[in-house]
């Protein structure tokens, strides 16, 4: 079943007096439960494509359907709710909330959902932290963790709401190769445990071996 269905996606950015054509007509479908990689050099449009799939940026032209919902027709409140309930994010620079400790960072999306008890939230967060192997760091603040540990927290946070899709924008770019490999192993494992669709972008050819499906992008177009 298609979880993402993109047709004729164009994204242009105004930059001073010129326009940057980030995506020039992308057609893409992604199946549920896939572990997919978007590959391309810097400036090829990987992050823009991920942002649009993740509903944090909007298409200039074209259609983007997530779970058959046309996201271009949604209000900001609806799109925010969609992100909260259906999509998890993993960022290149981890983007943890510095004033919250590990467990609070993981609990954060569940608290925003406001539909579970404190006990349920804590139980779910503990489970995810355990799965990413950080139980003993649960009460540490992000500044007290290594890069790899922070990215594990980010993975736990992305998965805690049991989303349909996890989007990871160059998740290993700020990590050494060993840690990067561990993170990808972990993502792969989580994909298998949680049955969540993973889409990650990379420009590193070495990480492609982990992907089930690879989509190459260059100059804003998918290369077939």
């Amino acid at each position: 079943m298609d979880i993402i269905d993109i047709k004729g996606l164009v994204k242009n950015y105004p930059l001073g007096e010129t326009t940057v054509h980030a995506l020039r007509g992308v057609d893409l479908t992604i199946q549920e439960g896939e572990f997919m990689s978007i590959v391309g050099p810097s400036g090829s449009g990987k992050t823009t494509l991920l942002n649009i799939i993740g509903c944090i940026d909007f298409a200039t032209e074209g259609s983007v359907k997530v779970h058959e919902t046309e996201i271009t027709a949604l209000t900001d409140r609806e799109v925010t709710d969609l992100r909260l309930h259906k999509i998890g994010f993993i960022f290149q620079t981890f983007n943890l909330i510095p004033v919250l400790d590990v467990i609070e960072n993981v609990e954060f999306p569940l608290l925003l959902m406001k539909n579970q008890s404190k006990g349920e939230i804590r139980k779910r967060a503990d489970k995810l932290i355990d799965e990413v192997g950080l139980s003993e760091y649960a009460e540490h603040r992000p500044a007290e963790l290594s890069g790899g540990q922070r990215q594990r927290v980010a993975i736990a946070r992305a998965l805690v709401t049991n989303p349909d899709i996890v989007l990871a924008d160059e998740p290993t770019a700020n990590l050494d190769s060993v840690t990067g490999a561990q993170i990808l192993e972990l993502m792969k494992k989580m994909n298998e445990i949680e049955k969540t669709t993973f889409i990650f972008s990379t420009h590193d050819e070495h990480v492609l071996k982990y992907a089930q499906k690879i989509v190459k992008i260059k100059d804003g177009r998918i290369e077939r």
């Binding site: 409140r77 925010t80 992100r83 309930h85 994010f89 960022f91 983007n95 510095p98 954060f108 925003l112």
Partner: peptide, 16 residues
């Protein structure tokens, strides 16, 4: 600013 972007991306509403 990036923190604001992160919490908005995760799903925090504007009013929060």
């Amino acid at each position: 600013t990036r923190e604001i972007g992160t919490i908005r991306a995760i799903g925090m509403q504007k009013r929060d």
